[in-house]
Simulated scan of single mutants.
Amino acid sequence: MIRGIRGATTIESDIPELVWSETVKLVQRVAEANNVSPENIASITISTTPDVKSAFPAKSVRLMEGWQYVPIMCMHEMDVPGALPLCIRVLLHVNIDTPQHEIHHIYLNEAVKLRPDLVR
């Protein structure tokens, strides 16, 4: 079965090093919390708010040990007034037998405001 596993984080400012480091931290936490290895990931979609434009977040994931063959695509979120700024979101499409209600979605930094119902 393929399940979607969500996560989001924010950065303090739009500089490449923060985009990359926070993206890696988020993806690692999502994978660890759900006992997922790169071999089980069908693909990853990464989106950023339009104010994040200094670097491709996917670059940092591709450089992680063992992750170079995971298909990853980046895009911008809709530019909705009042949206959480400087936000990076991930959606991992994972081959996993875990029931939907046992999936651990990960929200870090200011992104915990997005889904307080899912923060554990």
Score class of each variant (00 low, 15 high):
P85W: 12
G82K: 08
I2D: 07
K53Q: 10
I96E: 00
E39F: 02
I44Q: 00
L63N: 13
P57F: 02
I103G: 09
S37C: 07
V19L: 05
P38F: 07
D51L: 02
H93W: 05
R3C: 07
R3I: 03
H104K: 09
V119A: 10
P50G: 03
P16S: 04
I103F: 05
L118W: 11
W67D: 15
M73H: 14
D79I: 02
E39G: 09
D97H: 14
S60R: 06
L118F: 15
P50W: 02
H104C: 05
E32G: 09
M73L: 15
E22H: 13
L92K: 02
R29T: 08
I106D: 06
D14P: 08
V19T: 12
G4H: 13
D117H: 09
P85M: 06
P85Y: 06
G4A: 10
T9S: 03
K113C: 14
D51Q: 03
R89W: 03
K25I: 10
A42M: 04
R6W: 11
I46K: 02
H105N: 08
L84Y: 13
T49Q: 12
H76L: 06
A83Y: 15
N34T: 07
Y69H: 14
V36L: 02
V90D: 00
V94W: 01
A42N: 11
M73P: 06
S13D: 01
S37D: 08
P50L: 01
N35C: 10
Y107H: 03
